[in-house]
Design a protein around this nucleic acid. Structure first.
Lengths: 141, 141
DNA sequence: CAGTATCCTTAATGATACTG
DNA sequence: CAGTATCATTAAGGATACTG
């Protein structure tokens, strides 16, 4: 409830405006971004959206992720209640990861993210090329 | 924009889940997250969603941000075509920042993010407390 | 297989001083 | 006011070796 629509017409602003009001500086958005904003969480969530996966399966499905980072990523997702971890005491050991209901609700958000990304990918790439051309050696990236 | 809630999604079935297929490993989502995932971008965007802001205004509106990080943040947003920067050659200098149309479209995404955050803030906090209680000294955070 | 434990490199952020 | 330039500090991520 930390974000409200306001009809603020401070400038020539048309359309819905996001506002945090005075309660918190960040509407709590940062708590989500602190999880999704890292390098691997979204990729793991997307893979788990397809179904239950074992550790090695996940690692193969997310090319480039190290064993260490996969462990850290699934642990943090588990800690947040987004992923469940089930250990089968077999030999060799078998551990299954699965999205929780809350984790599944997250996939809708990720889809929104993906849609926006797809829609603005090209414009952003173009803006970057133009900016870089106009600001050579700026060091900004 | 419209996020569809499908209720219980059995993981093994072909549902309206997020899929990247084989085209890219990340659906391009990472490109957005690489910008929004940092510590300050979202906060700056949220503030600019209220209207045009000058540099110092922005800094006061985003408590805790350093001059350096504000500069880096607005430069990167400008580079991506999300924010426009207008310099008025006055004394003292006056520089105005404003969301571009693409920047405004971003605020819809941020709102979706904020909504999800607000809705799951408490469950996540509870999940963390429980996990931490069950895994003392794990080092995970 | 599913991890831990170390060590190392790089990226991100912060603090401070200075300038047109 | 609106920055830049430096230096210091953390945090994130990667490489590799080892284990129940």
């Amino acid at each position: 409830m930390s974000v409200r629509h306001t009809g603020v017409t401070t400038a020539a602003t048309i359309g819905p405006v996001v506002s945090c009001g005075e309660e918190h500086e960040d509407c709590g958005i940062r708590e989500v971004l602190d999880r999704l904003g890292d390098k691997w969480s979204v990729l793991v969530v997307v893979e788990l959206a397809q179904g239950i996966r074992r550790f090695r399966q996940l690692q193969r499905a997310v090319p480039g992720i190290s064993q260490r980072m996969l462990t850290l990523t699934v642990r943090r997702l588990e800690r947040d209640g987004l992923v469940s971890r089930t250990v089968h005491p077999t030999v060799p050991p078998q551990v299954e990861y699965e999205l929780t209901p809350m984790g599944h609700s997250l996939t809708h958000l990720v889809k929104t993210l993906a849609d926006w990304s797809a829609e603005h990918r090209d414009p952003i790439a173009r803006a970057r090329r133009e900016w870089d051309a106009e600001h050579p050696g700026s060091g900004i990236r």
